[in-house]
Simulated assay, not measured.
Amino acid sequence: AAPIGIGTSPASSWTGRSDSTLSIDGGRETNNSFLVNGIETRNSRFGSAGIRPSADAIEEFSVQRSTFGAEFGRSSAIINTTIRAGTNELHLAVFEFLRNRNFDANTFFANRAGSRKPAFTQNNFGTAVGGPVVAPFYNGKDKTFWFFNYEGFRQRQANTATALYPSPAQMAGNLADDSWGTGIFPLSSALCQANPKSSKCRDVIDPTNGLAFPGNVIPGSRLDPIVQKQLP
């Protein structure tokens, strides 16, 4: 079997793209040919597939490597895809792949914060239909066929973000208030004496004299009244 690796092209590190690519027999991702009905569709800059047909539009595909005819001679590996055609009978296929928050679990961080699942709706849908060309003046049975395929993707998603915010007492100057779990304790406090390496232990320094504010409380007279009016 041909060893095939699927991953992100190294080119994504300098292009900012994250196209899925193939490494076949240890060759470079840019050395592959992606043929659709025999026509080269490879992206000449990034080496990825230029056309990605819907799964319902594919009749068959093959991966050729190392030994193949001269018509495929420019690449080390060939991914050849054949698109479906119509038949003498009318055939229709419709699909819908649905995801939403009613089917999905909540995220770890939203659970920990006690938040509900964020809004999420994803629809991947499409159709494939084909048959003979029939007109008042022409019957294409056994001769001429048509085929149509469409695939759509819609996603509406909200993101849950968690953060630590200062408590009202902290916004009033008492930075040691820990009612919201955001307190900054002076190094002389009992908590910091028992846990000197705690991330919550730090003296708040007065920039005018280089000394710590007593108890990490900034006097109200030192707070900007304009900023105070903007706080919730």
Rank of each mutant, 00 (worst) to 15 (best):
L98G: 06
A135M: 15
P132G: 01
G126M: 01
T144Q: 06
P136D: 08
R112W: 11
P118S: 09
N139Y: 07
S115N: 13
T127D: 01
F145H: 05
V129Y: 08
L98E: 04
D142F: 13
T107Y: 00
K117T: 13
D104V: 14
G130V: 13
D142M: 08
R154W: 12
F148V: 14
T121I: 14
A128R: 00
N106A: 10
F148N: 03
Y150S: 07
G152K: 02
L92R: 08
N149C: 01
A119R: 09
V134I: 15
A93F: 06
A128N: 07
R116Q: 11
G152E: 02
N149M: 02
N149D: 06
N139D: 15
L98R: 05
Y150L: 11
T107N: 04
F148Q: 03
L98Q: 05
P136R: 04
F153V: 09
V94D: 04
K143Q: 08
Q155N: 15
G131P: 03
P132C: 00
F120P: 02
F108E: 09
F137R: 10
K141Q: 14
A113Y: 12
R99T: 14
N100D: 09
N106H: 04
R112H: 12
Y138H: 10
N102R: 11
R154C: 03
A110L: 12
F148W: 05
E96D: 15
R101V: 06
P136H: 03
G152Q: 04
F125E: 00
L98T: 10
N106D: 10
D142H: 15
Q122T: 10
V94F: 08
R116V: 15
N106R: 05
S115P: 02
K117G: 01
L98W: 13
G130R: 07
N102I: 10
T127E: 04
R101I: 06
A135R: 11
K141R: 15
K143P: 00
F97E: 11
N100S: 03
F120K: 10
Y150A: 15
F97I: 14
K143E: 07
Q122D: 03
G130T: 11
V129H: 01
G140Q: 05
N149S: 09
Y138R: 12
G130Q: 01
S115K: 13
F103V: 09
G152R: 02
P136T: 03
R112P: 01
K143V: 14
S115G: 13
V129N: 05
E151M: 13
R116Y: 12
N149K: 02
L92P: 00
T144I: 05
T127M: 14
A93L: 11
G131K: 06
N100E: 05
E151I: 15
K141C: 03
G130S: 03
N124C: 00
T144W: 04
T107Q: 06
R101P: 00
K117V: 03
R156C: 01
Y150K: 07
N139C: 04
D104P: 02
F145R: 09
Y138A: 12
F148T: 06
N123A: 13
V134E: 13
